[in-house]
């Protein structure tokens, strides 16, 4: 009641009813960099998945994927990154390793936890085949399902070279795709080929592009206009623009894997892409039912199912 100010006869200052308190302001200021915690009583929405298709399985694409997942986690989303490339470049990048493959003592080695609660899973076909017994595979599937149950968005990372081996996944499991497009002729043609492959297997796919390796702003529009024009002209489909990323000028160091270590422009680009991802993907409208994503991927693609 000490907040009530007398303004005159019969008038009271009731602004405190609408404004947050100083303590609240302080608390929110300090917690702004922390991921938003969710009320466990609120039922979580079905898990949404998006497949991010890189130009090649290298550290540059891993840089984008990992930093995008961190940016999304900062926006309060629970993120899981599934690395489906040989050698797991994303996981290595995240863990600050350069070219080392993660160990394979047991299935736990393929599932890791990163900062801001981002979950990492490596699902390479050859690696999975090396898992010794079916009990271990089954345990891994259980772990993956547990991740899926506590995730808002699953980001699947795969390079164009490996995309051709994923046709069942393209057709049945994932609806949303993000294709990385650099501003050079040959890589653009490869990206277009990837887009054509996706649409040929999944005509209802929603494909967006992230234009990378940008030196000047005008290149963004040039790349997008060319790519979207070709897709419209030859495939009769539309592309979504998710944003762009400036070229990383300094040498890629896996140990400094967070965008803010590079420069503010890169951080801003990734933050913008993350916001568009949240707006476009609309977590309430799911591409697959909760609990089915990893089961479908492991059963259809790797031949792993629960025993």
């Amino acid at each position: 009641m000490n907040k009530v100010k007398k303004l005159g006869k019969g008038l009271e200052d009731i602004s405190y009813l609408f404004l947050s308190s100083e303590q609240e302001n302080d608390a929110s200021r300090f917690s702004s960099s922390q991921p938003v915690t969710r009320d466990p009583a609120v039922p979580s929405l079905p898990t949404k998945s998006v497949c991010l298709i890189g130009n090649s399985a290298d550290m540059r694409d891993a840089f984008l994927i990992i930093n995008l997942s961190l940016a999304l986690a900062r926006l309060g989303m629970r993120i899981a990154v599934v690395d489906m490339d040989e050698g797991f470049p994303c996981i290595n990048f995240f863990l600050g390793k350069n070219n080392e493959a993660p160990g394979l003592g047991d299935s736990n080695e393929l599932i890791r936890k990163g900062p801001l609660g981002v979950q990492l899973a490596g699902l390479d076909r050859n690696m999975l085949k090396r898992l010794s017994d079916s009990r271990e595979k089954s345990r891994m599937l259980e772990q993956l399902e547990a991740i899926e149950a506590n995730t808002d968005l699953i980001i699947v990372s795969i390079s164009q070279d490996n995309l051709r081996r994923m046709e069942p996944v393209l057709r049945d499991v994932i609806r949303e795709f993000l294709v990385i497009v650099p501003p050079q002729k040959e890589p653009m043609l490869d990206s277009y080929r990837a887009i054509k492959r996706i649409f040929s297997h999944n005509p209802l796919a929603k494909i967006g592009v992230i234009i990378t390796d940008i030196a000047h702003m005008y290149e963004v529009e040039a790349v997008y206009t060319t790519m979207a024009g070709a897709v419209r002209k030859f495939l009769d489909k539309e592309l979504y623009k998710y944003g762009f990323l400036f070229s990383v000028k300094q040498e890629m160091d896996a140990k400094a894997n967070i965008a803010s270590f590079y420069d503010a422009d890169l951080t801003a680009c990734i933050s913008n892409i993350a916001q568009i991802v949240v707006l476009r993907l609309n977590p309430g409208e799911s591409g697959t039912s909760a609990g089915l994503f990893f089961r479908k991927i492991t059963a259809d693609y790797f031949g792993v199912s629960k025993t």
Binding site: P183, Q184, K185, M188, L189, Y192, H216, Y218, E219, E221, A222, V223, T225, T226, G229, A230, K233, F234
Partner: peptide
């Protein structure tokens, strides 16, 4: 293929 071979990143 021709659509991309004619691409110029400074075309705008």
């Amino acid at each position: 293929i021709a659509e991309f071979m004619n691409f110029d990143r400074k075309q705008t």
